[in-house]
Amino acid sequence: MSAQGPGDALSPLERHFSASDLVLYGAATWDWHRLHYDQAFASEMGLDAPIIDGQIYGALFAKQAMDEFGPKAFVRRLEFRMRNMAFAGDTLVARGEVTERRAEETREVLSLNQRLLRGETVIAQATTEVSLPARTICR
């Protein structure tokens, strides 16, 4: 059952990031920057461990929206801000809710607030707009 209107929560999305997950994401995006897998380089940069590439947070926020609203949904805007770094070995959970719903020609547009958490720590925050064919939402 998907969120339909303001105040409705999105289903949480949990993701663990092992070191090999970071390598896999780097390769899949043609980005082999060693900050995401090289412990010695991360230390040189003053970091405790290789960091998760913040770009993947956008993909997770988009995935949470697509999982919630189904294959006819279209993510048309997504803006995210980094709040804290996250590292190889971390488990992050995306949470969010619908903040607004409005009709636009043949589509319904939902605005979302989303955040990515490690425990209580906010790693990133997003505002997202998803559009759906009008008939897929009924209330």
Partner: peptide, 24 residues
């Protein structure tokens, strides 16, 4: 494609990785 692939991938750049492995 998943929604954000287009803005996350460096596939378009066709650059050799630099000394840190970055190719975007």
């Amino acid at each position: 494609a998943p929604p954000t692939l287009v803005v996350e991938t460096c596939q378009y750049a066709d650059r050799a990785p630099d000394e840190n492995g970055y190719a975007g």
